[in-house]
Write a protein that binds this DNA or RNA. Structure first.
Lengths: 186, 186
DNA sequence: ACCTGAACACCGTTCAAGT
DNA sequence: ACCTGAACACCGTTCAAGT
């Protein structure tokens, strides 16, 4: 957090650019959101963006960090503890920012910064899911692979637009597989 | 197939451009393969590409169609019939063109042509996998969701670079879930 | 029908110059 | 420290002109 007026101003301006970028990225997508349009939406000149950010992918990472921080705060204070409930909450939240999710996967191979953020995100979320599963009494040795399958299934649900019915069937089948005798989760 | 000399020439030239594009897309990625470089690799002028293809995404779709046709021919004449064996073969083949897989997902939202091809590809492959599962004696009503989870897991394996050990664990867990009592596949 | 040279509009990014 | 105007190199794509 800022330690003086100058830094506070800087953070404010950065925050405005990030907010404008988030809006544009979500509505039009990363590629269709030119730096010039982004600057216009934030009320600055295109090259001003480069005073606050290294490049366009750096703006994306800043948007992702802000979004993650906000969602994580909500997640921590969720009023329910069940695995299935918490999983569904996460999927619903991710669905609202699915445009960002696909952008991350699209920029992964072009930007080291996005790749790093993506790695950290997976470690964090898979750590959380792993903890939830252990909490639910799963056998420790089977959990890592089941976590990956769960995460990949969620990513697949987000990337491919499916009907509500299909989504429910898939979620039910996934939870069924997680809870089956075979996977040693009660 | 071409019906006269003229059409044959046309198909030949098209094929050369497609071959050059496949090479570049796989080694450098779609975005890094500028039309100008693609033209140079094929021995033509940039705007000649536009005589044979509508736009850059149309070149991508042509590459995908050629690749799919080639792989499908091999798949049909596979010497083994086991579900796990055939699944592993598909994953290994997809891994060698994972750059194309991620490109498809990246262009999905920007190009209607790529989106259409992707839809057809999923219908085809999910149809095949569904048939393999029924062949293995799975309960018909549970198959669609399990197919989706399998496909999403494969896509996840391709998109996120994992160690060989992790991949094996995930594949084993997936097959375990497919074959479990719960999923009604013997 | 096929291919080219030259141009167009746009992109992300840089830089010297201002305050 | 912060911001701008102007430019740079590059991109996908188009088009009039040639054969």
């Amino acid at each position: 957090m800022p330690r003086n007026k100058r830094e506070q101003d800087r953070e404010e301006k950065r925050g405005e650019i990030i907010a404008a970028a988030r809006r544009l990225f979500l509505s039009d997508g990363f590629e269709a959101s030119a730096i010039s349009r982004l600057a216009q939406a934030a009320g600055v000149t295109p090259n001003t963006i480069y005073w606050y950010f290294k490049d366009k992918d750096d703006v994306l990472v800043a948007v992702l960090e802000a979004e993650l921080a906000a969602q994580l705060a909500e997640y921590q204070s969720l009023p329910f503890a069940g695995l299935a409930e918490r999983l569904l909450w996460v999927v619903n939240r991710l669905e609202q920012v699915s445009q960002l999710v696909s952008t991350v996967h699209a920029r992964l191979h072009a930007s080291a910064a996005v790749n790093d953020w993506h790695d950290r995100f997976h470690m964090l979320t898979e750590g959380l899911l792993s903890a939830e599963m252990q909490n639910a009494g799963g056998a420790a040795d089977r959990i890592p692979a089941l976590v990956k399958i769960s995460v990949f299934t969620i990513e697949g649900l987000l990337a491919h637009s499916l009907s509500q019915e299909e989504k429910q069937n898939i979620c039910a089948a996934l939870v069924g597989a997680l809870l089956s005798r075979n996977s040693a989760l009660p």
